[in-house]
Simulated assay, not measured.
Amino acid sequence: MTATPRQDRTRGRPRPRTGSLPAFPRLSPAWRKTVLSAHVVASVGWLGAQVCLVTLLAAGLADDDPARVGAVYGAAGLLVSTLVAPVSLTALATGLVLSLGTPWGLARHWWVLIKLGLTALLVVGSNFSLGPQVLELAAATADGSVPPPLLERARTVIALSVALTVLLAATLLSTVKPFGRVRRRAGAPAARG
């Protein structure tokens, strides 16, 4: 079998074009499967943590007993402090490695760019805004005292519900892959990766 002029004869992969950005090495099939598995596990874990947080905070919102409210907010605080940062950062990191190390590329398809933007926004929001809000609620109710005002707790539930919806949208982008390829301007060098 002869290779086309644009194919590397030793690997059967396209050679980088002259003038393009430095290439990120392609993942071997075994590494791709490993990173993809880690990405799916982290993403599903993050999605599950978000569902649990919304459920716990909604249960605390609907309850009047300070001891039970403190218990559910304490559980939500434990989820935030132990699980949200590791799974969200792992999902973001493995997603970047997959986009750079596979033919999907980082800037070749609109769904990859949109999902990257949504994921980065969610990582920042989950770890620097929503997470601290949940931890404050957990600390405020830890001793079984009267919970913070209903409106404050409702805002946190609404914000977490919006974050969950955005996370579901990012998940759907991975399966549906809409919007096609990113079009390049004429004469612009093609970025690899």
Rank of each mutant, 00 (worst) to 15 (best):
L113C: 13
A30Q: 08
L96W: 13
G12V: 05
P103F: 13
A188G: 06
V166L: 15
P16F: 03
A142S: 09
L92W: 10
A142T: 04
V69Y: 02
S99K: 01
A120M: 04
F24V: 11
S88N: 14
Q50R: 00
Q50I: 04
A3G: 12
W111L: 09
I158K: 00
T141S: 05
R185M: 15
A120C: 06
V166Y: 09
R32D: 15
W111N: 08
A170G: 13
A191K: 09
P148Y: 04
S37D: 13
I114D: 05
L122H: 08
K33H: 14
T2E: 12
F179A: 15
T4R: 08
G180W: 01
A62Q: 03
P16V: 01
R32V: 12
G77Y: 11
A76W: 02
H109D: 10
A142V: 05
C52S: 15
P103K: 09
E136H: 08
T141E: 01
W111G: 08
A62T: 02
L21G: 10
V166P: 10
F24K: 00
A62K: 02
R184P: 03
T4N: 10
P25S: 05
E152S: 14
L150D: 00
A188F: 07
A93C: 13
R181D: 15
F179E: 14
G45Y: 03
V87E: 08
R13D: 08
L173M: 08
E136R: 05
L116Q: 00
K115H: 09
T18P: 10
T165C: 13
V69R: 01
G193P: 14
G95T: 03
T55G: 14
V146Q: 09
L135F: 09
A58L: 10
L96S: 10
L172S: 04
T90P: 03
L116I: 02
T18I: 11
V123P: 10
V162Q: 06
A71P: 01
D143E: 11
L83N: 08
L98S: 07
L21F: 11
G125N: 15
W31M: 11
G187P: 09
A163V: 05
F24Q: 00
G187H: 07
L21M: 09
V124M: 13
T94W: 03
V80F: 13
D64R: 03
F128D: 12
L21Y: 09
G105D: 05
G193F: 15
R17D: 15
T156Y: 05
R108G: 15
A30F: 12
S161T: 14
L118S: 07
L47S: 11
R32K: 13
G101T: 02
V44S: 06
L57F: 04
L57K: 01
